[in-house]
């Protein structure tokens, strides 16, 4: 008993400190660093660029295209009414600033300055000017983490907008990605636009993703195309988060 007490007197503080450190680390690991991310969001608040960037980026060209788009949407709606097409409900997005990048170099992630308090949930799609950028993988009260489509672990179902040939898209870092086709001889050529496909379980169909840069039809086991992601993933300052489709 005495020796136990002496041992405790000599090493007690060390034992307490080590268990305290590991305990805190474990809690932070289990909560996916939510406390750190929230604190970081508070710290960076004065530097966050808000939604007014959105206005700055609009220029005459975009307004012109929007006007045309509205006209086409109107026509499309009327046509859909004619054929009794089931309309997918468009929900408003949550504009949020990009406050940080990934916490290590192997992952392609970004941290957004809006979290569950603003209504963001895991699985929501993240868009930026230019198209789809990723999917929310974890949420804290005031921040959320997004797995970018340029990450090698990200796999999304996509289609060639012109010919509707299906495949899936795998990230390759920065703004590059590879699309593998399901067909042996897909109708695809450089410059074609790539959008999310209607069989994608994660995203609603038709979201713009990127453009075909080059095509390799000889590739085994399936033909491949190199895709350039249209959203400027390396210098994102804000993004819009949309609820998951299903």
């Amino acid at each position: 008993m005495y020796s136990l007490r002496r041992w405790w007197e000599r090493h007690g503080l060390q034992v307490v400190l080590v268990s305290l450190t590991l305990g805190t680390a474990w809690v932070l690991q289990q909560t996916q660093g939510a406390a750190i991310l929230d604190f970081y969001q508070l710290l960076t608040r004065p530097f966050q660029s808000g939604a007014n960037k959105e206005e700055r980026l609009t220029n005459a060209r975009i307004q012109e295209l929007e006007a045309r788009l509205q006209d086409l949407q109107k026509q499309n709606q009327q046509l859909k009414q004619v054929i009794k097409y089931q309309k997918t409900r468009q929900q408003p997005g949550i504009v949020s600033p990009v406050i940080g990048r990934s916490a290590d170099s192997w992952w392609q992630q970004i941290t957004l300055g809006r979290g569950s308090q603003d209504g963001i949930k895991v699985g929501f799609a993240v868009m930026a000017p230019g198209g789809l950028v990723g999917r929310v993988v974890s949420v804290s009260a005031r921040s959320s983490r997004v797995l970018l489509i340029s990450d090698p672990s990200s796999r999304i179902g996509v289609a060639i907008a012109r010919s509707r040939h299906l495949g899936y898209l795998r990230g390759q870092g920065s703004n590059r990605a590879v699309m593998q086709f399901f067909d042996k001889v897909p109708n695809v050529r450089p410059g074609d636009f790539v959008v999310t496909s209607s069989v994608s379980r994660l995203f609603s169909p038709g979201l713009p993703v990127g453009r075909v840069k080059s095509v390799n039809l000889q590739k085994n086991p399936a033909p491949e195309a190199a895709i350039e992601i249209t959203a400027p993933i390396s210098f994102l300052e804000w993004a819009i988060v949309y609820p998951a489709s299903k």
Partner: peptide, 12 residues
Amino acid sequence: LALGMIQDGMTS
């Protein structure tokens, strides 16, 4: 170990 666990929480 402690910092590695925290970084794991922040990525995967």
